[in-house]
Measured scan of single mutants.
Amino acid sequence: NQASVVANQLIPINTALTLVMMRSEVVTPVGIPAEDIPRLVGMQVNRAVPLGTTLMPDMVKGYA
């Protein structure tokens, strides 16, 4: 099963992502693939992302 990117903490709206904010986990539904974590660093979320939430492509500005 493919691992997805999951929020390791509450990520406030418009926050630029850092490695410490994300972890990989096998979840359903599948979100952004864990191998894209390096690409996500520095990108901003367009909404608040609660701890444990799977990051979906539409949550990250410029990802989709």
Rank of each mutant, 00 (worst) to 15 (best):
residue 1 N to S: 15
residue 1 N to D: 15
residue 2 Q to I: 09
residue 2 Q to T: 15
residue 2 Q to A: 14
residue 3 A to H: 10
residue 3 A to F: 13
residue 4 S to Q: 05
residue 4 S to Y: 13
residue 4 S to M: 04
residue 4 S to A: 12
residue 5 V to T: 15
residue 5 V to W: 01
residue 5 V to E: 00
residue 5 V to C: 14
residue 5 V to I: 11
residue 5 V to P: 02
residue 6 V to T: 14
residue 6 V to Q: 12
residue 6 V to F: 09
residue 6 V to P: 00
residue 6 V to K: 09
residue 6 V to M: 15
residue 6 V to D: 00
residue 6 V to Y: 14
residue 6 V to G: 02
residue 7 A to K: 00
residue 7 A to D: 00
residue 7 A to G: 05
residue 7 A to T: 07
residue 8 N to E: 13
residue 8 N to M: 12
residue 9 Q to A: 04
residue 9 Q to R: 05
residue 9 Q to P: 01
residue 9 Q to K: 07
residue 10 L to H: 12
residue 10 L to D: 12
residue 10 L to P: 08
residue 10 L to C: 10
residue 10 L to M: 10
residue 10 L to W: 08
residue 10 L to A: 12
residue 11 I to G: 00
residue 11 I to C: 03
residue 11 I to T: 02
residue 11 I to N: 00
residue 11 I to P: 00
residue 11 I to F: 02
residue 11 I to L: 10
residue 11 I to Q: 01
residue 12 P to C: 08
residue 12 P to E: 11
residue 12 P to A: 10
residue 12 P to Q: 11
residue 12 P to K: 03
residue 13 I to D: 04
residue 13 I to Y: 06
residue 13 I to G: 04
residue 13 I to Q: 10
residue 14 N to A: 06
residue 15 T to A: 05
residue 15 T to R: 05
residue 15 T to C: 02
residue 15 T to D: 04
residue 15 T to Y: 10
residue 15 T to F: 07
residue 15 T to G: 05
residue 15 T to I: 06
residue 15 T to Q: 06
residue 15 T to H: 09
residue 16 A to W: 09
residue 16 A to I: 05
residue 16 A to Y: 08
residue 16 A to Q: 04
residue 16 A to E: 03
residue 17 L to A: 01
residue 17 L to T: 01
residue 17 L to D: 01
residue 17 L to I: 10
residue 17 L to Q: 00
residue 17 L to R: 00
residue 17 L to C: 02
residue 17 L to K: 00
residue 17 L to M: 08
residue 18 T to A: 03
residue 18 T to W: 06
residue 18 T to C: 08
residue 19 L to I: 04
residue 19 L to S: 06
residue 19 L to Q: 04
residue 19 L to G: 02
residue 20 V to T: 12
residue 20 V to L: 12
residue 20 V to F: 13
residue 20 V to R: 09
residue 20 V to Q: 13
residue 21 M to H: 05
residue 21 M to L: 15
residue 21 M to N: 09
residue 21 M to W: 04
residue 22 M to R: 00
residue 22 M to Q: 02
residue 22 M to H: 00
residue 23 R to S: 08
residue 23 R to E: 02
residue 24 S to M: 11
residue 24 S to F: 07
residue 24 S to Y: 07
residue 24 S to Q: 14
residue 25 E to C: 04
residue 25 E to M: 06
residue 25 E to Q: 07
residue 26 V to M: 07
residue 26 V to S: 15
residue 26 V to Q: 13
residue 26 V to K: 03
residue 27 V to M: 14
residue 27 V to D: 09
residue 27 V to T: 09
residue 27 V to L: 05
residue 27 V to A: 08
residue 27 V to F: 03
residue 28 T to K: 02
residue 28 T to A: 08
residue 28 T to Y: 04
residue 28 T to G: 06
residue 28 T to M: 05
residue 28 T to D: 15
residue 29 P to S: 09
residue 30 V to N: 08
residue 30 V to P: 13
residue 30 V to Q: 11
residue 30 V to G: 04
residue 31 G to P: 00
residue 31 G to Y: 03
residue 31 G to Q: 05
residue 31 G to E: 02
residue 31 G to D: 01
residue 31 G to H: 02
residue 32 I to A: 03
residue 32 I to C: 13
residue 32 I to W: 02
residue 32 I to D: 00
residue 33 P to S: 12
residue 33 P to C: 13
residue 33 P to F: 14
residue 33 P to A: 15
residue 34 A to C: 13
residue 34 A to V: 05
residue 34 A to I: 15
residue 34 A to E: 14
residue 34 A to Q: 14
residue 35 E to I: 14
residue 35 E to Q: 09
residue 35 E to L: 06
residue 35 E to Y: 05
residue 35 E to T: 11
residue 36 D to A: 03
residue 36 D to H: 08
residue 36 D to S: 12
residue 36 D to R: 05
residue 36 D to E: 09
residue 36 D to F: 05
residue 37 I to Y: 02
residue 37 I to S: 14
residue 37 I to L: 13
residue 38 P to L: 14
residue 38 P to M: 07
residue 38 P to S: 10
residue 38 P to D: 11
residue 38 P to A: 13
residue 38 P to G: 05
residue 38 P to W: 14
residue 38 P to E: 08
residue 39 R to I: 05
residue 39 R to M: 09
residue 39 R to V: 07
residue 39 R to T: 04
residue 39 R to S: 04
residue 39 R to C: 03
residue 39 R to F: 10
residue 40 L to Y: 06
residue 41 V to R: 07
residue 41 V to H: 09
residue 41 V to N: 03
residue 41 V to G: 11
residue 41 V to A: 06
residue 42 G to K: 03
residue 42 G to Y: 10
residue 42 G to N: 09
residue 42 G to D: 08
residue 42 G to C: 08
residue 42 G to I: 01
residue 42 G to Q: 06
residue 43 M to G: 06
residue 43 M to K: 06
residue 43 M to Q: 15
residue 43 M to S: 04
residue 43 M to R: 13
residue 44 Q to L: 07
residue 44 Q to W: 13
residue 44 Q to C: 02
residue 45 V to F: 01
residue 45 V to D: 00
residue 45 V to E: 01
residue 45 V to N: 02
residue 45 V to G: 01
residue 46 N to Q: 12
residue 46 N to Y: 08
residue 46 N to S: 13
residue 46 N to L: 13
residue 46 N to H: 12
residue 47 R to I: 06
residue 47 R to K: 11
residue 47 R to C: 05
residue 47 R to L: 05
residue 47 R to W: 09
residue 48 A to F: 07
residue 48 A to G: 10
residue 48 A to W: 03
residue 48 A to I: 12
residue 48 A to R: 11
residue 49 V to T: 06
residue 49 V to A: 06
residue 49 V to N: 01
residue 49 V to K: 01
residue 49 V to Q: 03
residue 50 P to G: 12
residue 50 P to D: 11
residue 50 P to N: 13
residue 51 L to W: 14
residue 51 L to H: 07
residue 51 L to G: 09
residue 51 L to E: 14
residue 51 L to K: 07
residue 51 L to T: 14
residue 51 L to D: 10
residue 52 G to H: 15
residue 52 G to T: 13
residue 52 G to R: 10
residue 52 G to E: 12
residue 52 G to N: 10
residue 52 G to M: 14
residue 52 G to P: 00
residue 52 G to C: 04
residue 53 T to N: 08
residue 53 T to V: 08
residue 53 T to F: 14
residue 53 T to Q: 14
residue 54 T to E: 02
residue 54 T to Y: 07
residue 54 T to S: 08
residue 54 T to N: 03
residue 55 L to R: 00
residue 55 L to A: 01
residue 55 L to G: 00
residue 55 L to W: 01
residue 55 L to I: 11
residue 56 M to I: 11
residue 56 M to R: 12
residue 56 M to L: 13
residue 56 M to S: 08
residue 57 P to S: 10
residue 58 D to N: 06
residue 58 D to C: 15
residue 58 D to P: 06
residue 58 D to Q: 08
residue 58 D to R: 04
residue 59 M to C: 03
residue 59 M to A: 12
residue 59 M to K: 02
residue 59 M to G: 06
residue 60 V to A: 02
residue 60 V to C: 02
residue 60 V to D: 00
residue 61 K to M: 07
residue 61 K to H: 10
residue 61 K to A: 06
residue 61 K to Q: 10
residue 62 G to H: 10
residue 62 G to L: 11
residue 62 G to R: 07
residue 62 G to W: 09
residue 62 G to Q: 15
residue 62 G to S: 09
residue 62 G to E: 13
residue 63 Y to G: 06
residue 63 Y to H: 03
residue 63 Y to L: 07
residue 63 Y to C: 02
residue 63 Y to I: 05
residue 64 A to M: 14
residue 64 A to L: 09
residue 64 A to D: 06
residue 64 A to W: 02
residue 64 A to I: 12
residue 64 A to S: 14
